[in-house]
Design a binder for these strands. Structure first.
Lengths: 242, 242
DNA sequence: CGCTCCCTTGATCCGAGTCAACAATCGTGG
DNA sequence: CCACGATTGTTGACTCGGATCAAGGGAGCG
């Protein structure tokens, strides 16, 4: 993703808890989060919020935005963020000239979709404890892949309200479950740093299954057919594959 | 999608409630559902099932499967299905030679992702009544777009158990909610045919918001930037755009 | 120093789950 | 065409996980 960083013509600094993109906003410009966390979310008519996914350093806010004229959901920062701005022209040029990045981007789109599906499973069929355990495990893997976690420990800038709105729970209940996890010695969570003290127990508690985040672990076994066929998912045709 | 149909070298007929693709299966081959319904789902270790999405006539079972070596979830038929089989070579050739279909496919991928996000909102922040109302409305629009519904009426081959596993509810509760909707005169549901008798009330009940299924309604306002830039999402580079 | 979020805990309530029994429908083979 | 077993739908009684309401306590910050 460093090549993407190089592309950013300018960097915008956003305050904590501020709005990057609002539902209905035009989205020609590509935004790359360089530091900080953001989240996609929807506000329902009755004021309830559902967080759909998190955007962490290295992620694009609207990677396939090029085909959509308008945003379908909001993106807000959770922490102060540095956001790189990429013009559509630059972005498309990059796609054409750097097939490897193109493929990495497409790949990350697939991982994103897999995470959305897994979230659906979580919300549909797991209880509060499993949901929270699952989220903590998933974030560890993801942040690990981004180099933002060391030995089962990472910065977690979410409030308990954010966690509640991610997992379809209430603040109060999230708090109680986290308390239990603390007293069980599974996690330490203090001033927005999470440490998973007992990975095995936590994964067991959350029925966390590594298969679904395979794309994050590095030891994925995919991309055969397309590569065999010298096929590139994105580019214009100017790109020579492999 | 007719051009896709033409591509299918052979057609497989599957029984009702049979397995098309299993988690971990290799997925080089592309499967196009020509008639019948199928669903993506996951079975959890404790035996619970979560249905992730429905596959209806015209949909591909594994469109971006070309980049994944293995399936990450199962696909089962819900009704008897005729499934067209497309080899990866044929598929890629098509992508190169028919940029319009390519774009339509990419577009449908975006719509799919939007539906996944909307399902997350449903599961996270809507109650049982809203979930069911929402599902019925969403399916009407989707089937309408596929020409499979006429005046607020369509074939719904789901059992109440399927609906429960889609919406994170139990069979019993789904049944009670549907009963209520019937007695309120909102819907008629009998021998797998659903009629929405009172669209306005049902959408109000489900807080159903047309924005999120915009891609289905035909009057979408997207694809500007990419088209202006003569950019095609998929192809090899052999494709000349528009 | 005082506000404003955020976290924490208790008491109570309710939407949806569980358990159980039975009716209706469907499909299949005799 | 009917009989039988197997799904699917329906309803009631009861339970429970998580929501709601309410009240303090802490921590960051201007």
């Amino acid at each position: 993703m460093n090549a993407l960083t190089a592309l950013t013509s300018r960097v915008v600094v956003c305050n904590k808890r501020s709005n990057i993109l609002r539902e209905g906003d035009p989205c020609e410009t590509i935004y790359l989060v360089r530091t900080g966390w953001a989240c996609r979310h929807t506000i329902l008519p009755d004021g309830k919020r559902q967080i759909i996914s998190f955007v962490i350093p290295g992620d694009l806010c609207n990677d396939h935005g090029l085909l959509s004229k308008h945003m379908e959901h909001c993106i807000d920062t959770l922490t102060p963020c540095e956001i790189g701005v990429i013009s559509p022209h630059q972005f498309l040029d990059m796609l054409n000239q750097h097939p490897r990045i193109s493929r990495a981007l497409y790949w990350s789109g697939l991982v994103t979709e897999a995470m959305l599906r897994e979230r659906i499973v979580t919300l549909g069929r797991r209880n509060a404890t499993q949901r929270i355990a699952h989220l903590f495990c998933e974030l560890l893997l993801r942040l690990n892949a981004a180099g933002l976690a060391q030995n089962h420990r990472y910065e977690l800038p979410l409030t308990q309200g954010d966690i509640a709105d991610t997992l379809g729970l209430t603040i109060v209940h999230v708090n109680r479950v986290i308390q239990t996890m603390r007293t069980m010695g599974l996690i330490k969570l203090k001033s927005h740093v999470l440490e998973i003290s007992n990975w095995d127990s936590l994964t067991a508690l959350g029925k966390f299954d590594l298969r679904h985040v395979n794309g994050l672990t590095g030891n994925d076994d995919r991309t055969s057919t397309a590569q065999q066929l010298h096929w590139s998912p994105w580019p214009e045709g100017l790109a020579s594959v492999h």
